[in-house]
Amino acid sequence: MPNERADRARRITVRQPGPLLVEGPVEVELEDGTTVSSDRFLVALCTCRRSRRYPWCDTSHRRKTRDSG
């Protein structure tokens, strides 16, 4: 997948609160330089960093948090 020329632009859909939905397949470079990939037609990328499968969304953003006040 690296260095492949895209036939068309990738669509990324932003959902608040929630993941970024990216038309796949995708390759994601993480902060530490490792690369993960998915060949699914639609990939949900975690934006809340609560996912146990980061960078993939596992719907952890849906969990309610307690108010500290």
Rank of each mutant, 00 (worst) to 15 (best):
T65I: 10
R63F: 13
E27L: 07
H61V: 10
E31L: 05
S60Q: 07
E29A: 07
V14D: 09
G69I: 01
R11S: 11
I12P: 09
P25A: 02
S37V: 02
R53C: 15
D67T: 10
A9C: 04
C46M: 09
R62M: 09
P55M: 08
D67C: 12
E23T: 08
E29N: 03
A6M: 05
R8A: 11
R53T: 15
G69H: 03
L20P: 13
S51G: 15
R5F: 03
P25G: 03
L20N: 08
V26A: 02
G18M: 02
S68I: 09
S60V: 08
I12W: 04
Y54G: 14
R10F: 00
L21N: 11
W56E: 13
R11T: 09
G18P: 04
R49K: 15
C57F: 13
R66Y: 10
A44S: 14
V28E: 00
E29Q: 07
Q16G: 10
D58W: 05
R15H: 10
S68F: 09
R62Q: 12
E23W: 01
R52N: 14
R5H: 04
Y54Q: 07
V14A: 09
P2C: 00
L45P: 13
C48T: 03
R63C: 13
D67H: 10
T59D: 14
F41H: 07
R53I: 11
K64I: 07
